[in-house]
Amino acid sequence: MNVTVTLNGAPVTDDVTPDTTLYEFLRAHGCKSVKCGCETTNCGLCTVWLDDAPVLSCAVLAVRADGRSVTTLEGLQDQSARLARCLAEQGAEQCGFCSPGLVMNVLAFERELAGRVPADEEIRRFLAGNLCRCTGYMSQMRAIKRYLGCPDPGAWPGAAGASGPAAAGTAARPAPVPVAPAKEVPTHER
């Protein structure tokens, strides 16, 4: 079947079998940023935009994209730069395999917010489908909150007031970690 999509702004036409997923189609057309982690719509790694809405490309048939526009991270190199910087400064990409899908979804979220500052739980809910096995999500959360202008993004390298070695910028050394004095511990209720 012939499929024509506007891929990152340029028309692409190909003859595909009916069972070809959008994920397969995109990889075959050089969009290697699109990753597959599960095939069962659980991981979010394959997130791309279909007509500007985030979709899981492993669960969309390529033929469904016919006549529509598809955006991958390859097409958002400039738009994603500031978010990338926030993530990098937190070390929030460990293996990085989940990063493209996350970036796509955060940028989609940002557009949906239209300048509104979201609550933590709202961020977690929107991004719940983006699994990451490496980072434990906290660094991503700090980075995303900073990116979206949320108050109190948490420990930031070099940020004044942050505690612990993660606050160690090149200029300011961290204060020694305070240690609680060994004092009498109240008997706990049982």
Binding site: K32, S33, L73, E74, Q77, A84, L87, A88, G91, S99
Partner: peptide
């Protein structure tokens, strides 16, 4: 970091 985050 930046190459990974750009999906290279």
């Amino acid at each position: 970091a930046y190459a990974l985050l750009a999906g290279k």
